[in-house]
Amino acid sequence: MNKTQTNSTGFSLSSDRVSVIILLIPALIFCTIFIFIPAFWAIVGSFYSYGMTSLNDWKWVGFDNYIKASQDEFFWIALKNNFIIVFASIVLQVGVGTILAAILDRGIKYGKVIFRTIIFTPMVISSVAVSIIWLIIYDPNVGILNSILKAIGLPTPSMGWLGDPDISIWMIMIVAGWQNTGFMMVLILAGLQGVSKEVYDAAEIDGATGVKAFWYITLPMIRNILIVAILITTIGAFKVFEFVYVLTQGGPSNATQVLGTYIYLQAFNLLHMGYANALSVVLLIIALILGWFQLKASRRA
């Protein structure tokens, strides 16, 4: 009796183990072949010099690629721009998204669905299409931005909106905000709708209404969602590629270069594969640090 039981448990366990492995393995194979092994080779390849046509003809150069990066002005500009985009996105997308969500949640009575639908719409349009639309808006000759400013008698930038290195990165942020703020709004709105009405009733009795109630009661209650929103935005800011590639190609004179576009430029235009790998490793390290924060945040949530 006892023996049969052990046998049957033993049998079901091993067949379970087989099916568990079969269920897990496809995900692991895909991620290993296309993410983890390439990540490993990016690290190895960063110590070599090789080109596109000599993908298998590697020359060991030690830390040369990293030394080159540390002396490469454009690498530092790209890194700085990624950080500018992180902070600007948190303010513009998460900040404005929170205000919009709060207004749609309790600030207005009419038109909630219409406003939400409109503001969320850019999310489903491809970033390439979005960027091309904004190219015509910013265009010095046919763009409506210049036309509007001229019509009301304001000056327009002489080098064009995207041609002036002092403002071009901010013009890119306006486009990024146009596309992503609605997403943040919807994410945060879902959190706000989880705050029960009783909480607000109780707050009202204590004299907290409107903005005050929002600041002292609502914000702390949606803290976890805000952390998730900030993390998604930060991770997204390091993935930025299309806006820069389409709007400015990293120019004028590399002023709007970001890590994504600079890696692409080094690898596929200049064919400095080893150097591109070293730049990738920098991005990889930042990404893994952010991933670690993500893990911490999800455990807390």
């Binding site: 993410i35 990016a42 390091f238 994504g260 692409y264 991005l283 990889l284």
Partner: peptide
């Protein structure tokens, strides 16, 4: 966490 550009 790893973006495509990091393993391009």
């Amino acid at each position: 966490a790893i973006p495509p550009a990091a393993v391009l």
